[in-house]
Each structure stands twice: as structure tokens, then as C-alpha cells.
Amino acid sequence: MSSGRERVLARVRRALADVPRDERPQDVRVERGYLRVHGDRTTARTVDLLAENLADYRALVHRVDAAELPQLLKRLLAAHGSRSVLVPPGLPPGWLAAADPVLALVPDREADTAYALDAVDSVVTGCAVAIAETGTIVLDGGPDQGRRRITLVPDHHLCVVRVPDQVVGSVPQALERLAPGRPQTWISGPSATSDIELNRVEGVHGPRTLEVILVDGRTEGQG
């Protein structure tokens, strides 16, 4: 194994014979003249833009006050015909309080196989951050989001974004907030493909229905 390593590294060094020996990586100039965020927006406008861009890529967007969230979740799950819902370990308990009596709440357990997850209708999570300019929600495995597989196998994903706290304008601003060491999933609309004649078709392997709920203010159970 180390022989391959030494061989490749020696080749790289020979190939770079033209690079002065005393040149350091930071001596190669990177001009970061690009914008941190595109356009000057109020916080409210940034949230509106997030909603627009999410909807543009066929996510279903809902906006509610914190107090209405449990009823909305109950209604959306019922409308989708869901009988069971996956629950990340740290999901604020109040969120599914209204849905609880009607639906089977399935806790995310490590022992559960992918087949078990496939039998569950929906999943409800929070998120780490949402990006307005691109209509993206980012999951980083936080307690209210759970393991990556639970937002992948069920066909219906309900994601709650706390606005405006969790919303940033741009990709650079999102990366600043995120910890690289955590496994991340960036989601921009439901699963899609452009593989047939380069036309976008929604709905392949990931959840075919993505509902994003923008919740104003602090929500129940958020301390």
C-alpha cells in the first residue's frame, strides 16, 4: 500500500519540477472578489426568497406561526395518507403532539434495517440551516434531524425551518455556519432527474414529496 503512495507522490513532485522550491501554497494568489451574498435584502425578503426558490423546485412550502405547527403537521400527514411517521430522537416533542393519537410514531433506532424504514410513510425533521438564494435546506444529523437514512427511504419528508434564525442568504454564508465534521445532506427540492432528454422530472429515489414548513418565531419545546 505504501509503495503505491510513494510512487504517486514521487510522480507528483517530479511533475511539478517547474514550481519554485520556495513557493508555498498560499503564495498562489486566489482572488476572492466574488460576492458573499447576491443583493441587499431585508430579513423578511430573504425568507420570502427561500420560499420562492423552494417552490420553484417543486417543494411544497407552508408558512405558520409556532403555535399552529402541531395542527399543520397533523393535517399534512393526514392529507398525504400517512399512517406512520419516523421521528428523530431530538425532535421537539410538541411538534407531533396533535398527530400522535392518530399516527404511529416510529422512533429512529439503529437496529432498524432499511427495509423497516421503507415501510414507514413519512418523516418529520428540523434542519441545520436553509439557503434562500438556492432554495436549499441542509441537514447535519443534529438531534432533530437524525441519521441520514431516515430522510431518504420514506417517500414523504416534512422539514421544519425556524425563520428567520435558520435562514441565510447564500451558499458562502451557509458553509460558515456548518461544521465540516458532521455528515451533511443538502436538499433542494424533491428527488429529480434530468437524464431523459435533459428535461427535469421530479421523483426518483429520494422522497418524492418534500414539504418545507417555515415556522415564525420560537416553537413549542424549544426552551
Binding site: Y57, I131, R147, R149, R182, P183, W186, I187, S191, A192
Partner: peptide, 21 residues
């Protein structure tokens, strides 16, 4: 590539994570 503001899914992982993946 696909002329999108952002592609539907981007996965990022660093080594292995306990009980996830």
C-alpha cells in the same frame, strides 16, 4: 451542469460517523 441554482442532493461526509452511514 444541470443549469440549476442547486442540484437536488449534495452529500458530504468525513470519514465515518458512529451509527450514521
Amino acid at each position: 451542469s444541470t443549469a440549476e441554482r442547486m442540484n437536488p442532493y449534495t452529500s458530504m461526509w468525513t470519514g465515518t460517523t458512529d451509527s450514521d452511514g
